[in-house]
Computed example of a mutant assay.
Amino acid sequence: MLHVRCRPDTSEAAYRAVLDLLTGYSPVLHALPPAAALVETRGALPYFGCSSDQLAARIRLRAMALVGVDVHIGIARSWAVAAMASVRPARNGLRLVPAGGEPAFLDQLPIEALHSIGPVQAARLRTFGLETIGALVATPPVTVGRILGGKAGRIPHERARGIDPRPIVARALPLTVSERAAFRQLAATSLSVNVVFADGAAITRSRKLRETSAHDEDLRTVAYALWEAFAFERARIRGLAVRVDVTSAAQAARQITLDERREAPVRLEPVIDRANRRCPDTVGPASAYRRTG
């Protein structure tokens, strides 16, 4: 598989153009906003009659020529290794990690480079002397589990050995704030927060809403709860994206409640929306504005 990474300053329009380009090489494309994507190549390689690194070189060349975007591409048999490879490309913008070559690529990398590990987890591993990915591999899984706790220890230990069974599932780029009109007849079912660190590593947390909702306050509450669950301490963050899975608002159930603190803003939302449609971005909740006296 290929992990295609655009520059951090790539515009949304250019990023979408890169995704459109990638669909010409594989129908199994998983967008990773704000600036990356995964491409499944098992069907593409025999179709184009080339190796994975040759296909990656072709994609990079066309991205620069047709879209004007320089991309770095990691090539590996697992999601995590391909993502780490795209952060550390060779001079040609590519990094191939062949099957069986994961230890040679991973073992000397700093522990912070491990895909999906957060800065808090990395700092905790360092306090126990585990400063490289190779040191983590040499540590028994039970010990890593005691340091990080249960599943939080098992997954990093597997990825340090190049094991990541997650398949690539086709996922298009979700709607954005610039397409706000499209959200008026939709309701949210779940929400995900994706954080990209300065070194290119990323971590995602998701939560399903207790009930389908089209109300700003419900989404805001879940987003803040997910953010607090990261428990970052001095993290160097390069990108932050919030993804909402939606369904038709007509299918959303309305839970009756006697809580006036919830009902008042819910009733006020349609009024605010109507006002903002006439005078964009001029009305909002009073709690969002700084008091002046």
Rank of each mutant, 00 (worst) to 15 (best):
D218F: 00
A202C: 06
V196C: 07
S190I: 00
A214I: 01
R210N: 10
S192K: 05
R243I: 01
E158H: 13
R254T: 08
T221Y: 01
A160V: 05
Y224D: 09
R238M: 09
F197M: 08
A253L: 10
F232V: 15
Y224T: 08
A160P: 05
R210V: 05
L173P: 06
H215W: 07
A152R: 15
A250M: 10
I168C: 02
R159I: 00
I237V: 12
A250T: 13
L240P: 10
I168N: 01
E211F: 00
P167H: 12
L219P: 01
I147F: 13
S192H: 06
R161V: 04
A229S: 15
V142E: 14
V144N: 10
H215E: 03
D164C: 13
A170M: 06
T189V: 07
Y224K: 12
R184S: 06
L240I: 15
D218K: 00
P156Y: 12
H215V: 00
A172C: 05
L219E: 01
E228W: 08
R171G: 05
H157D: 03
R207L: 00
R236D: 11
V242I: 06
R146N: 11
I168R: 02
L186D: 04
G153V: 11
A253Q: 14
F232Y: 12
L240Y: 15
G239T: 04
F232T: 15
R236E: 11
R180Q: 06
K151P: 09
P141G: 05
N194E: 11
K151I: 09
P156K: 14
S213E: 03
T143M: 14
H157V: 03
R220K: 04
G162P: 06
T189C: 04
S206I: 00
R243Q: 04
L148N: 02
T204C: 14
R238I: 04
A201H: 10
R146W: 13
V244Q: 04
N194I: 09
A187R: 03
A250G: 08
L148M: 02
I168W: 01
